[in-house]
């Protein structure tokens, strides 16, 4: 449910950016669209408009993970698309710092997986840097196979664990 909620906010924001070209024009969006935004804002009483925009950007950046094939740090087409959206948000919010976490499934051995997790995080960082985000704003950390999302021993589960997660602040 939370993911759908976040997705909705992300789609909404993309729509707003396309329609208005600037996140600050939330107040001029249609009533139906602005309702969900104002609900979020309502929970964040006392925040300035800039702070609200920053919080929304953080939420959107953290919303979508990217996934990898076994023993691979190659970015899929879908991952590139997700990263492109994150790059735009990072550029629009220059005060944000991003931490990219690289993760692996349990099948590899621990040390190699720790290196592979770093390569996965680094692949996303390099893409964002090439997309115009200042590399000094992006940190990477590899968790190898230490923090699985899913603990079952099958491909459906392993494929969820081979991922990059994004933490913005």
């Amino acid at each position: 449910m939370k993911r759908f909620g976040l997705l909705g906010v992300a789609l909404l924001a993309m729509g707003l950016m396309v329609a208005g070209g600037c996140a600050k024009k939330v107040s001029s969006t249609p009533a139906g669209a602005s309702a969900s935004v104002s609900t979020d804002a309502g929970n964040q009483g006392g925040l300035t408009e800039a702070e609200r925009q920053k919080m929304m950007a953080i939420e959107k950046i953290q919303a979508n993970r990217i996934y990898f094939a076994f023993d691979s740090n190659e970015l899929s087409q879908e991952s590139r698309q997700i990263l492109t959206e994150k790059a735009e948000l990072m550029k629009a919010n220059p005060s944000l710092i991003l931490v990219i976490e690289g993760h692996c499934d349990e099948r590899g051995t621990n040390e190699y997986n720790m290196a592979l997790g770093e390569r996965r995080a680094r692949a996303a960082k390099d893409f964002l840097a090439l997309s115009g985000v200042d590399a000094s704003r992006i940190q990477t950390i590899s968790y190898g196979e230490e923090r699985p999302m899913c603990t079952e021993h099958n491909e459906a589960c392993w494929s969820k664990n081979r991922r990059d997660e994004f933490r913005a602040q």
Partner: peptide
């Protein structure tokens, strides 16, 4: 760098370790 992996002692008593200072481990 961001990563410290598999530190081990060499025969000389020094430590060898994998770091990703140059963009790769």
């Amino acid at each position: 760098g961001a990563t410290v992996i598999s530190p081990t002692f060499t025969a000389r008593g020094t430590i060898a370790v994998t770091l990703d200072m140059g963009g790769s481990p």
